[in-house]
Computed example of a mutant assay.
Amino acid sequence: MRPKLNYRLGLPAAIAKKVEKTGQTRGAEKDTVYQNRVNRNSTVLIPISSWKADIILPEGGFENGYIVLANPEEYFSNHPPTPRRNLPTNLTLGENLLVLYETRYHWNHYPPSKYSWVAGNSRKPPLGGQYIARVPDTTSDNDCIERHGYVDKDTGGQGAGIRVYEYASSKEIEATRYQLSFLVWRTEGILDMAREEDIPNPEECKAKIEDKCREMGLDDLQLLEKNRMLDNKGRTVCPLCLKPILAKELAYRVEQAEGRNVPDLTVTTANLFHVKELKAGVYNHRRYNLGWGHHHCNAAARDWGVQLTLEWMEDILRNNGRIK
């Protein structure tokens, strides 16, 4: 029986897993309010400052809803501590709004127990409480870590939701995975790697992915080249340095500097690369904006995207006399 068509078809196991992971958010520690590596269409956390600035919502809204977060000083007026009168009228505490505690000062000056609040435990309204806390320990003997709300399996795992700029709809997640698979099949050495893993008929698998991408409107080679994901020979390149990506770079771990080795490193030499950076209200995890880039190029671009990074690099080269 022929394998069912999906974006993983024919890909070496390590690369297939990498394509799968692109539909998930970045890692998050337990001392933050964010979920660790969950689907990009999960519940979104929106700072109240962004909400007040009329953040643009995605077409159709967020598939799994949203929660707006305000710190105590954004929620309360100081004299006396009562809810501010200028809070947006479309926000209701415990329904789509939670007060977020992240500092010892806020915890001590606006203690939730004073207002008979309980910690939130639901990602759908009603939220089951009025606040969430991630307050670190201090050197004081009387202080301890305060972690309340969305802390165990009963609430679906650590964290209340995902960063708003990481959001993508389920439809967009599927489309980008197919397009990234399309790009994988255009990396140097991918057919040889597939054969080494005894994957049957890799050329046929590649053709099927290309056909599917053509059907979905994901195979515009000119646009992929314009957006720095392919070169003029149709090869997958790093969006920053524009060097061809090798298939093995997607599967092999990055070399570690001597003396800085860690045993559990999972970072590969090439990884997911956002050509235009992720930012709130733009939702740049989308088709024709995702490529495969070198780990060190990704680190250089950080949250700037390609254009700002190139301008920064030009300044460095100019300041060092390498260009005029």
Rank of each mutant, 00 (worst) to 15 (best):
L183W: 04
H285V: 02
A16C: 05
V164S: 13
E225Y: 05
L230T: 05
Y75S: 09
S50R: 06
A28W: 00
S140Q: 09
I199T: 06
R123D: 00
G217T: 10
T25W: 01
N320G: 12
K324V: 06
G60D: 10
G281A: 08
D219C: 04
V267D: 14
T155I: 01
G321V: 08
N71H: 06
Y66V: 00
K208I: 08
G156Y: 01
E146S: 06
I245S: 03
S169G: 12
P202I: 02
S170G: 12
I46N: 00
R104L: 06
V282W: 01
N108K: 14
A301K: 14
E74A: 14
R85L: 07
I132D: 03
T92D: 02
E225I: 01
D137C: 05
E172N: 15
G293M: 09
T82I: 15
K276R: 15
L45F: 01
S181D: 06
A301E: 09
V68L: 06
I173A: 10
A28D: 06
Y66S: 04
N271S: 14
R286E: 07
Q24T: 13
N86E: 13
P263L: 03
P3V: 03
P47Q: 09
S113E: 15
H274G: 10
G156R: 07
H148G: 00
K171N: 07
A14K: 13
Y75Q: 12
Y110C: 02
L57C: 12
P12F: 09
E225W: 02
V164R: 07
R260Q: 09
W51I: 00
K17Q: 15
E197R: 13
Y7M: 09
T155Y: 00
K52R: 15
R253T: 08
N96S: 02
V68F: 00
N41H: 15
S116D: 15
P111F: 02
W292E: 11
V306Q: 08
N121T: 07
S113Q: 15
Y252K: 14
S77N: 12
W117F: 10
L9G: 11
R322V: 11
R286H: 03
P58A: 08
A251M: 05
L290G: 11
S50N: 07
N201T: 10
K233H: 13
D303W: 07
Y66D: 02
